[in-house]
Amino acid sequence: MIRMIRSLLGAALLIPTAALAQAEAEPPAVSIAYNAAIVSDYRFRGISYTNRKPAVQGGADISFHSGLFAGTWLSSISNYGGAHAEIDLYGGYAGSVGGWNYSATVLGYFYPNGVDTDYVETQATLAHTIGPVTATATVAYTPKQWNTGDNLYTSLGADVAVLGTPLTASVNVGRENGSYDEKWDWSAGLTYTIDRLEISATYIDSNYKSPLEAGRNARATALLSVKATF
């Protein structure tokens, strides 16, 4: 993560030690983070966007002390309406109250050179941590647009830190209705973190069945990923 760093060397003799310590303890006004990953399959809500093949992904995020944030994320994908890449742009607000963390986000999904593919979604999350367990509820709503109808996706997940180890176990279940009729997806995985590197293995499956390619792309899989943040 790249952070704004202000040099206090020139003012060190003028600022009392206690005040200097307090200033250093304050969070930065702006934080910027980058990420890059290689995955064995790009799955979005249980369905492969790469025809069950590997993908290269990356993104950048900027967050402000006020709680506002914005970012972008991209991934290689299989042919989707003529597009071979997905680019997400998003922004929103995040905060916490009474031990609960929340966020509200507007996301745009863009597929360069795709025909009738781009759309906008709103999303809200609520998370709470008890000991090593962080539970997160997500509600994502896509309002009716010129190329898509209403779609609602809800999910509930939990991350459990395995005490004394660099491992985190994760489980998630989601339900989608609109673009799909009563589609459920679920996953369970394990992530090993070392410094800024995350190595994950995840089992993903769904109840979506179809003789078309989308049905085959929703079958169970073991997904492997390597992600770096900086």
Rank of each mutant, 00 (worst) to 15 (best):
V120E: 11
A104T: 11
A220H: 12
S103I: 03
A83G: 05
A218V: 01
A60W: 04
S66C: 08
A11Y: 07
I77W: 09
V226S: 10
M1A: 08
V97K: 08
Q57R: 08
P16N: 03
V173Y: 03
F230N: 07
A222F: 15
G58T: 07
T202E: 15
A55T: 12
L74F: 11
Q145M: 07
S170L: 03
I2D: 10
A158M: 12
T221D: 13
T191A: 13
M1N: 02
A19C: 01
V39H: 07
A214M: 07
K183W: 05
L14I: 00
T165K: 07
E213H: 02
V226D: 06
T168Y: 11
T134W: 11
R216D: 09
A60I: 13
D61A: 09
V226W: 09
Q123V: 04
L224Q: 07
E182G: 14
T221K: 08
T165E: 06
S75C: 06
P16L: 00
I38G: 13
V133G: 05
V173K: 01
R43Q: 06
V115F: 12
T142M: 10
V115K: 14
A127F: 10
S155T: 07
F69Y: 15
W100N: 02
R196A: 13
M1F: 10
F69C: 05
T165R: 09
F110L: 12
G58R: 09
E24L: 14
D181H: 15
T191P: 09
I194H: 14
S179L: 14
K183R: 13
G189C: 06
G46C: 05
R3A: 04
D88W: 03
R3P: 00
K53G: 10
A124S: 13
A140D: 10
Y141Q: 02
L8P: 00
T165V: 07
N172D: 12
G215N: 01
S206Y: 04
N172K: 10
Y49P: 00
A29C: 00
L156F: 13
T50E: 04
E86G: 01
V56D: 01
Y153C: 01
V226I: 14
E86N: 06
S103T: 07
Y203F: 15
G189T: 02
G114C: 03
E86D: 02
G157W: 05
G67H: 09
S48F: 06
S78V: 01
A137L: 12
T136D: 10
N113K: 11
D159Y: 08
H65V: 11
A37S: 15
T229I: 08
A135F: 12
D185V: 02
S48Y: 06
G189Y: 04
R219Q: 12
A94L: 06
Y192H: 09
N177Y: 10
I15G: 00
W184I: 01
A104C: 05
G98N: 08
T117K: 14
E213W: 11
I199S: 11
P16M: 00
Y49R: 03
E198T: 13
D205K: 05
G59W: 09
K183Q: 11
H65K: 14
E198R: 15
M4Y: 05
E26M: 12
A188V: 11
L74E: 09
D205R: 02
I77R: 01
R52M: 08
I62L: 11
L74M: 14
A222M: 15
F110R: 03
G46L: 05
Y49T: 00
E213C: 00
G46E: 01
Y80H: 05
G108H: 04
L14F: 10
D41Y: 08
G189K: 06
A55V: 05
Y203E: 03
S48M: 06
